[in-house]
Design a binder for these strands. Structure first.
Length: 609
RNA sequence: GGGGCGGUAGCUCAAUUGGUUAGAGUACCGGCCUGUCACGCCGGUGGUUGCGGGUUCGAGUCCCGUCCGCCUCGCCA
């Protein structure tokens, strides 16, 4: 009998839903006189009296003012209008007209308003925990923004970021398909690969005790696609690396991933430069022009880092030879050691800024990077003063000439092994630029970094490790020394760096099975290991592999640059926190015992108290 | 795993040396206002000071532990 009761009851919603005709943010003075239906969220309300109520109605496209006026609006609409509160969802039908009270220049729709004739309350909200106002966004804690992401994403700023991200992926598909690429998907459940980041793993229910890994990138599959004759592949794909997040890094992130057959390094670089040019042109109307290249060696020498920020000077200079002639114990000890080195940065006109507090801070800062300290000094009209000035006397004139110093300059030094001194000073260079506000606004300094070493020595493991990854080919002229001088062998890898941030990287791959086996051997993989872990790749390389290479652009970081944020969570709709949690869904969480049994997993973790 | 900063009303913050009933703005509720536009005015509801222990006559404040968030080193082929 229950069904009869339901039929007998009057339908709760007696009006049919008003059908939207326009988006709020798109109405303009040309629309005056038009009958429209707009739908959205109440951004603000201004209740003047029983006879006059304004609301700003928001949708994805922007705000429009709606006015309820007892003289012109239906009485029922007036009643609903007065009761509207922030974030209620409504549909409103009415007439577009010029504003009686004068235009609001702050709004794109500021010349007009919608005179409400009728209104349908589609959803009454509970009092909102946060408000989606851009002018308040900086004040709302990120924790609360992430917890109530569905409200935070309503903000115009966040909507704009989501739109930019969508435009980037559309442009990527357009550009690469114009250039003969096919979009091909690769699996998410794959076999774990040694080296690289920590894998996320998934128990294989049908294979007790066995595990899938989630891909750190589609690297091997895209190479296999080249062997499979697909010629050019692109995918906009999720990559997963179980490592600690940072401000510009999430465990789960997105790459614009691609691979090309029958190409060399410059082909890939030109293809990607063209993509970057088109992105910046179409999204920001900026001509970035030809992108310069710089070798890894030069980047390390001049900037102390493999992703040089070329927007400002403060370049590192090697003054080991000069400093060997001082009596400064710190310099002498460093130079006496193996690979000892002294480097310096001239900081023009910064003498005033280098207070004791500041320079102590620099010493503290470089300790994070293994250096003992960051000695400083200043050049005054009377010669070097403060800091290590007295030790510099014997070499004062030569140092001034070498560094090009002028009165009022400050100098900061680092002495240690070449590796540590370079790293510490390279990091300090960036800190000084930020602290002294030396980074010019509005620059887009792209640079391709090339000629990376194939390998780095890992003293702990007592073997070579791949700087890029184990499938990166040596440069064409470097095959001869691959085995005889692995440490000196340069790779065909390339990174695209923008304003000191790595936004993409790739390489020409090894397409010869014997070269690949040599690299595996250098990395400490036995023939048997290599066959077990990468047998499918070696097999593919034996069956007709074209020369190929590719690259992956970090979509999240690209969008960060395009929208001007240094927080990666701002460009991801549903990001995770620093501890890998999702504050909205409360992931990760426990699973039912049954799920564990089915997947043959037993946890070793202590159950939560 | 290490270092740093933070957690007080739904939200953003304040609270003197450890001392009265933990305040303000905003949101929300009620009232007033016919041209506002982050409207304005009047009134009101709203608190386990992240959580647990300790010191003390007395703890938001001091100590220990713990959880959460952010930055960072390690890590991220």
């Amino acid at each position: 009998m229950l069904w009869l009761l339901e039929i007998a009851l009057p339908c709760r919603r007696i009006t049919t839903m008003l059908k939207r005709t326009h988006m709020c943010g798109t109405l303009r003075s040309e629309d005056q006189g038009r009958e429209v239906v707009v739908c959205g969220w109440v951004n603000t309300y201004r209740d003047h009296s029983s006879g006059l109520v304004f609301i700003d109605l928001r949708d994805r496209e922007g705000l429009v003012q709606v006015v309820f006026d007892a003289d012109d609006s239906e009485a029922s609409a007036m009643e609903v209008g007065r009761a509207l509160r922030r974030e209620d969802v409504v549909a409103i039908s009415g007439t577009v007209r010029a504003r009686a009270g004068g235009a609001n220049p702050k709004l794109a729709t500021g010349e007009i308003e919608v005179l409400a004739r009728s209104v349908e309350l589609l959803a009454k909200t509970e009092p909102p925990p946060i408000l989606p106002d851009d002018h308040e966004a900086d004040r709302i804690s990120e924790e609360n923004r992430l917890k109530h992401r569905y409200i935070d994403l309503r903000r115009p700023r966040m909507q704009s970021i989501l739109r930019t991200r969508s435009q980037v992926t559309k442009l990527a598909r357009d550009y690469f398909m114009d250039h003969g690429f096919l979009e091909i998907e690769t699996p998410l459940l794959i076999k774990t690969t040694p080296e690289g980041a920590r894998d996320f793993i998934v128990p294989a229910r049908l294979h007790p005790g066995m595990w899938y890994a989630l891909p750190q990138s589609p690297q091997l599959f895209k190479q296999i696609l080249m062997v499979a004759g697909c010629d050019r592949y692109i995918q906009i794909c999720k990559c997963l690396r179980d490592e600690d997040p940072r401000a510009d890094r999430q465990a789960e992130f997105t790459q614009i991933d691609l691979e090309m057959s029958f190409v060399d390094r410059d082909d890939v670089i030109e293809m990607m430069s063209g993509f970057a040019r088109r992105l910046w042109k179409e999204l920001l109307d900026v001509e970035i022009g030809e992108i310069p290249t710089m070798t890894y060696a030069e980047a390390m020498e001049r900037y102390g880092i493999d992703r040089p920020d070329t927007r400002y000077g403060l370049e590192l200079q090697d003054i080991s030879e000069l400093c060997g002639r001082t009596d400064f114990r710190v310099f002498k000890d460093a130079l006496a050691g193996e690979h000892g080195c002294v480097k310096a940065i001239r900081v023009p006109g910064a003498a005033e800024r280098f207070s004791r507090k500041v320079t102590d801070g620099y010493t503290e800062f470089v300790r994070d990077f293994g250096a003992g300290g960051a000695p400083t000094t200043k050049l005054t009209a009377n010669g070097f003063e403060t800091g290590v000035a007295k030790f510099l006397e014997p070499i004062a004139d030569e140092l001034i000439a070498e560094l090009g110093l002028e009165v009022g300059d400050a100098v900061v030094f680092a002495s240690d092994t070449r590796t540590i001194a370079t790293r510490a000073l390279g990091e300090l260079r960036q800190k000084i630029a930020q602290d002294l506000d030396l980074i010019p606004e509005g620059c887009w300094n792209f640079v391709w970094v090339i000629d990376f070493p194939m390998f780095e020595r890992d003293e702990e493991k007592g073997r070579w490790v791949a700087l890029h990854h184990p499938f990166t080919s040596p440069n064409p002229d470097q095959f001869d020394i691959l085995e005889s001088d692995p440490g000196g062998c340069l790779s065909a890898g390339y990174d695209l760096v923008l304003n000191g941030s790595e936004i993409g990287g790739g390489s020409i791959r090894i397409h010869d099975q014997s070269v690949q086996e040599t690299v595996f051997k250098l990395l400490g993989l036995t023939q048997a290991d290599a066959e077990m872990k990468f047998g499918f790749l070696l097999s593919a390389l034996r069956h007709g592999a074209p020369p190929h290479g590719g690259i992956a652009f970090g979509l999240d970081r690209l969008v960060m640059h395009l929208v001007g944020t240094d927080n990666i969570r701002d460009v991801i709709a549903f990001p995770k926190t620093q501890s890998g949690g999702d504050l909205m869904t409360d992931a990760p969480g426990p699973v039912d015992e049954e799920q564990l049994v089915e997947t043959h997993v037993r946890s070793t973790a202590e159950p939560p108290a």
